[in-house]
């Protein structure tokens, strides 16, 4: 029991560290690599939960996470970046220090909140939910602070990593739902990809600031 807890704590904690690395990283290929590493950690974490709690259906979730998010999506994004020709640095609205401080505050908030709310639940569930909420909030933060459309996609995907982690912590999420969520993420990637290429065609840039020009209230 204690051993099982230690390993799952290690993997979930490393996922949180990967989220912070995503926030910190300003080179676009490094962002992709960190995201792939986080997805692989997610797959290991889900697989470990499946093994230690005897829930074999989690292996399927782990396999989906590994193949789709660990390999397919990073490779697809990599090719998208090469085709867009944006190997340059990622631009950010806030500076890195402030972003990281906000991230720390969000993490502390989610840990305190989940530990208070779920006082009656099992240890695994509390731990998983607390870290998952932190990862979700960090994914949201990444989507807010980035101006490049591709890194915003990565932020969305990392948010979804947190959702899967929360789902494995809480028992009772049916497999059908997990599979459909996984594929809807894949669909979302296609939609994003089309959208990003349309933005680039229209504005010659994937910087979201370019969209500000089409707002009606700006003269």
């Amino acid at each position: 029991m204690n051993y099982a807890y230690n390993v799952s704590h290690l993997l979930a904690g490393l996922m949180l560290v990967a989220s912070f690395a995503l926030l910190y990283q300003d080179r676009i290929f490094a962002v992709l690599n960190t995201f792939a590493a986080q997805a692989m950690l997610l797959a290991m974490s889900v697989g470990w939960e499946g093994w230690s709690q005897g829930r074999p259906n989690l292996y399927i979730t782990a396999a989906i996470a590994l193949i789709l998010k660990g390999i397919v999506i990073p490779v697809a994004l990599h090719r998208m970046i090469v085709r867009l020709g944006i190997h340059r640095d990622v631009e950010q609205v806030l500076n890195v220090g402030k972003t990281l401080l906000i991230g720390l505050a969000l993490t502390a908030l989610s840990l305190l909140l989940v530990l208070k709310v779920t006082a009656a639940a099992q240890n695994f569930t509390r731990e998983g939910l607390a870290l998952a909420l932190a990862i979700i909030l960090l994914g949201l933060l990444m989507m807010i602070t980035r101006r490049n459309a591709v890194t915003q996609i990565v932020g969305f995907m990392s948010l979804e990593n947190g959702l899967i982690l929360a789902a494995t912590g809480a028992r009772g999420m049916p497999l059908v739902v997990e599979v459909s969520v996984a594929f809807s993420v894949l669909i979302a990637l296609f939609v994003f990809a089309v959208f990003v290429f349309r933005i680039r065609e229209r504005f010659d840039s994937v910087d979201i600031d370019a969209l500000e020009q089409v707002r009606g209230d700006r003269k």
Partner: peptide, 26 residues
């Protein structure tokens, strides 16, 4: 240097948060 030491601060803060989480959960 501020980025380097800011990284150290983030690591230390995460460490204390995770230690707190372990302490609360177990």
């Amino acid at each position: 240097v501020s980025e380097f030491l800011g990284g150290a601060f983030v690591f230390a803060f995460l460490a204390i948060l995770l230690a707190f989480l372990t302490g609360e959960v177990t």
